[in-house]
Design a protein around this nucleic acid. Structure first.
Lengths: 329, 329
DNA sequence: CTGTTAGCGCTTTCAA
DNA sequence: TTGAAAGCGCTAACAG
């Protein structure tokens, strides 16, 4: 910056001002500075800026996994809103491990982001403590709680699955089985399972609940195929499978097609997430649509309001969900 | 850090040392410092560290798009290797727009990352200039070139599609049509198209090339369905469609199933990428597998070597590709 | 193994 | 509209 100042014949102060708000300096001065910036190939040093101004112009984002996940849409929405405002995004993933999440929170907090975005509302005590102490705006997401750390953009996984069960029961299905991946650190999956159990208990009081889960392995269609087989072995009376994810449901629907199992006549199938494939399957998949990208965008907007010193009117945003009834039920 | 030093009865220097390399201070001292860190809830300020040491412990990554893309696996691989080494990742996406890529490069360069990862080998002149000037290690990826900016982890999209065409011709198909999304800024797609054109010219010299492309819209299965229809309208003689992506091919295969078009008897279909769905379709999809995650991991390893001051033995890594022949051809 | 000194490249504050 | 002085919170380099 000193080089630029010298080339433009002004002080570094003026260069700094011109860079942050071009209208705050005289037009001739601005011109000379812009020329000098180009000639010297000057690139701002945000670390110094951050240290001096105590604003990093970054947001930290923590998600369980990036690959093959619906969270990618959320991050895309988040960055779509944040980048034009000059913010860069730190991205970390936890692989559904609370310890890794805590380590990430700690490490990212050291970067002094101006805001924090995180999937989920359950964190280790230490992680929660750090998030609260930093004093920066924090958005939790993809779940629902009455007591968020700070801000919340999410929906009730529990209610979403209950609506699926209600739909199936209304359609005459009576022997429902839940099938999903339930990893120890995945509270969204647990909420969905609980939603199934609660809805089942309401519709069929006293009757045993049928649940088949996998705790490890990647979230792939192959898991759905495996779960389908396990359901048919352990609960052959099943007339409808409630999958915790479209990925699993898609694997099962495709396998049923290959095996000659008629969906929904022999077996109804539901998914979760409304992935791209859901509408393209034969039969098309009944599922729950989540506004994944919108979650990221709403979160970004809340963060921006806070980072700009405005007060946020609604600290908790429920993006809801939509039951999409298609041919598989 | 001064608070910690005071609480532990040492200088800030000793605290700094203890934090970066616990073995560099005495065991009692370390003990007192660790206690003090906990009691004061101290969180390092990496911005100050960065400014003083000229190391940011960050890597910048630029990809065309995050959502529903195979690049997510690459980023996962990249961060999987980088996070344990203490590096955080800045992630930005360009939506296949060169101007946005340049803006991102410029902005991220200001963060002074210790390394740069970017998809593709074609950038604006200005972006290339910035990448070269910073002097930091740069990994380009997902393509191939003889003159990378610095390091390269990729493969030849051109050769990959040629191998698909060779396979189809060897299988007796004679009226091939290429179908894909070819956005202006997507040079991988262009390389694939060129690979098709070149292979076609070699096998069928003088014969017109059949190509159907879409330039806009999201990369979704619906595009594959649309392209299928356009191929059947404009080139009804087609006996094999070479899709530029599994997403498109999957949409087409599913649609064929619904329409009663027999694959591969009436129409052979190939994809690209070996997405999860490819093996689960009926018939399973012949496609080209790319080691997406490995690209990220190899890139991270190269960056780490450079960032640690080691010399890199191979500046260009060809991860290759694998033609997976399945039922759709 | 530990401490002292200087300074990283900006921005804030105040003055002109 | 512009400039001078001070300092953000660390680490490098050196000394002890």
């Amino acid at each position: 910056m000193a080089d630029v100042a010298r080339a433009a014949g002004v002080s570094t102060q003026t260069v700094s001002r011109a860079l942050r708000d071009p209208r705050s300096v005289g037009p001739d001065t601005l011109d000379r500075i812009e020329t000098a910036v180009r000639e010297t190939h000057y690139v701002q040093n945000f670390a110094a800026s951050h240290l001096a101004s105590n604003r990093s112009m970054t947001v930290a984002a923590i998600i369980p996994t990036i690959s093959a996940s619906i969270f990618a849409d959320t991050i895309q929405g988040l960055t779509d809103v944040l980048l034009p405002e000059g913010y860069q995004v730190f991205l970390g993933h936890t692989d559904y491990t609370p310890a890794r999440e805590e380590a990430l929170v700690r490490s990212l907090a050291g970067r002094r982001p101006d805001g924090f975005f995180i999937i989920g509302t359950r964190h280790t005590q230490e992680a929660t403590e750090i998030l609260k102490r930093t004093g920066m705006p924090v958005v939790e997401s993809w779940s629902w709680t009455s007591r968020p750390v700070d801000l919340l953009v999410g929906f009730s996984n529990h209610a979403a699955i209950m609506s699926v069960v209600d739909h199936l029961v209304a359609g005459g299905y009576r022997r429902l089985t839940f099938a999903g991946m339930v990893r120890p650190g995945d509270h969204r999956a647990k909420d969905r399972l609980k939603g199934f159990i609660d809805a089942h208990a309401r519709h069929f009081p006293g009757q045993a609940t049928r649940v088949v889960t996998a705790a490890s392995g990647a979230m792939e269609m192959e898991r759905g195929v495996e779960l389908l087989h396990r359901v048919r072995e352990t609960h052959p009376e099943t007339d409808a499978i409630v999958f915790a994810s479209d990925v699993l449901a898609a694997g099962a629907v495709l396998k049923c097609g290959a095996l000659g199992i008629r969906v929904p006549d022999d077996l109804a199938i539901t998914g979760f997430g409304d992935y791209d494939i859901a509408a393209h399957l034969t039969p098309a998949l009944t599922t729950v649509a989540i506004a994944s990208r919108r979650i990221g965008m709403e979160a970004a907007r809340l963060l921006l309001q806070r980072m700009n010193g405005q007060t946020v009117e609604a600290k908790m945003v429920d993006v809801g969900f939509e039951l999409l009834v298609r041919g598989s039920t």
